[in-house]
Design a protein around this nucleic acid. Structure first.
Lengths: 110, 110
DNA sequence: CAGTATCCAGACCGATACTG
DNA sequence: CAGTATCGGTCTGGATACTG
């Protein structure tokens, strides 16, 4: 975990602009968000799906996204352990940013 | 200028996702973008408007936003020199991200 | 499988001083 | 006023090794 992360441990309700800066500014965040949105819910699957993404960084991102109320974490007490991440209601709205980015992508391709 | 900046000097058309990561990841970028959008076009005015923003960092942001085709720079050959930055057509669409952020802000406040 | 601890090269950005 | 050069502390994130 980074120091930046620690600073928002007990946030005075960070603004969305701060969230966006802090989340999007971190490498892999958008990728991870897109994966969860696409139904890839398990960390192992995410790590496998994204070339170059390591477990350490992935966990940092998942933690941050969870702390911001964008993702929801579920732990199933099995062996081997199974964990799933899902978008929260707010996370679904937040991830609409991905749609707008995609829209801009098309603008650029013309 | 940072090394990250140099890498996109001759871009193979960076994706919007990369642009977003690279721009939003840089502190002050959203603030600067919002200022230009609000009609604050001169660097001096921007520096004066944002507490904590220094000329060096401001120029790095303006350069990057210009290189990405989001801003347009105009130099008036006067003395003292006058410079103005404006949103390009693409920049206007890009800065719609700010609207969505503002929308999310309201979602969060409920 | 999920998650953490440690290390460290390199990037970021704030301060300062400077040019045209 | 606009912009650059340089320095230096801090943070980032990739590699590796490890626990439960």
């Amino acid at each position: 975990m980074t120091d930046k992360d620690k600073k928002i441990a007990s946030p005075a309700r960070p603004s969305v602009a701060e969230m966006v800066e802090n989340i999007v500014g971190c490498k892999w965040s958008l990728r991870v968000l897109a994966l969860v949105r696409a139904g890839v819910s398990r960390p192992g699957a995410m790590e496998h799906a994204v070339d170059g993404l390591t477990a350490k960084v992935l966990n940092e991102r998942l933690k941050k996204l969870t702390r911001y109320g964008i993702l929801d974490k579920t732990v199933y007490p099995e062996s081997p352990p199974r964990v799933e991440y899902r978008l929260t209601a707010f996370g679904q709205q937040f991830s609409a940013l991905l749609d707008q980015i995609e829209r801009l992508e098309k603008v650029l391709q013309q």
